[in-house]
Amino acid sequence: MGDILVITEHLKGEFQDITFEMLGKAKELAGASGGQCIAVTFGNMNGKAGELGMAHSVVSVGGSDDFNPESYAAAVQSVVSAKSPSLVMVGSTSMGMDIANSVATALDITTVSYCADMSSSDGGFSVTSSMYGGKMNVVTDVSGSAVAMVLAGAFNADAGKSAGSPTVEDFAVDSGAGKVRFKQLIEPEAADVDITQSDILVAVGRGIGSKDDIELAEELADILDADLACSRPLVDAGWMSKAHQVGKSGMKVKPKVYIALGISGAPEHIEGMKSSSTIIAINSDKNAPIFDVAHYGMAEDLFDVVEELVEELED
C-alpha cells in the first residue's frame, strides 16, 4: 500500500490540534498497511518538525507562512502528484476545505468529507462520514487514491503528539496563479465574555425559538453563575454576538458543565464542545444527535425543563 499524506494545519505559528489528531490516526493506518506517514508543512513550520514525531518524514513546501487557499492547494497538488499517496488526510476545516476539494478535482481523485472514523480494509480504507446534520453515518470504502477530510475532534490529539525528528524534505512546488492574496489576519473583537474560560456554560440552539426566549436561558445561567453560549444560527440571526458562538468557526470550549438547550448536535457544533467534562442535553427530539455526545439528557421540551429547574433552584 501507499503512503498516507497528512496536510498539517497551523495558525499564528502553532500547529492546530487537528494536525495531531490526523497524525495519530495516519500513523496507525500506515502501520497497518505497510506505508509511511508523511506530514506536509507550509511556510516556516518545518522549523517545528520536531513536534511531528508521529510522522515518518516531513515534506516542507515552504512558501507563505499565512494560509492561502490558492498557493497552499497548488503546493499540495504538486506533492500529491509526485508522491502518489494512497490517502491524503486534510482537516475538515475552513483551511482544509479549500485544499482538499481543489486537489481532488484537479487530480481526479475520490473525496470523502466529514470523516468521523477511518480504518483499513482490504485494499484500502473504510471511511465513516457524519452526514445530514449528524443524523446518519455513511461508510465509504476507498481504494486507490483518496482525499479524506477529517472532522476536528474525531480522533485524539494527544495520541498524535510525539516529539521526534522526522526527516525533512524541502519540496519545490507550484505557487499558484497569484489571484488570491492574503492581506491580514483579523482577530475577534474583545468581548465582554470569554466563554473558553467559563466553568459552566448554558448553551442555546435553534430550539429556543425566538430572541426573547433567550431570557429564560439567561435566568438559568444567572442562577448557576454560568455564561451563555450558543450555536451558530443564533449568531447569524443576530440574537447573540459571536463571542458566544461555540462550534467550528466559533469557540472551542471545555467547561466543567455544558448544558445544551435545544441544540440538535450537528458535527460543526459538537466540534466546539465535545471536550466538556459533563455535557447535559435538553432537546424534545429523543433522536437528536446531541444525545450521542451528551453524558446526560432529557428528551423534554426545553421550556418546561428550564422553567421548572429555575423555580426549584430559586428556592
Binding site: 440552539g205 444560527p233 467550528k248 440538535s264 450537528a266 427530539d285 433522536n287
Partner: peptide, 9 residues
Amino acid sequence: EPQSEGLDL
C-alpha cells in the same frame, strides 16, 4: 415519528 430541530452548527 418525532422530529429534529434542524441543522445546527
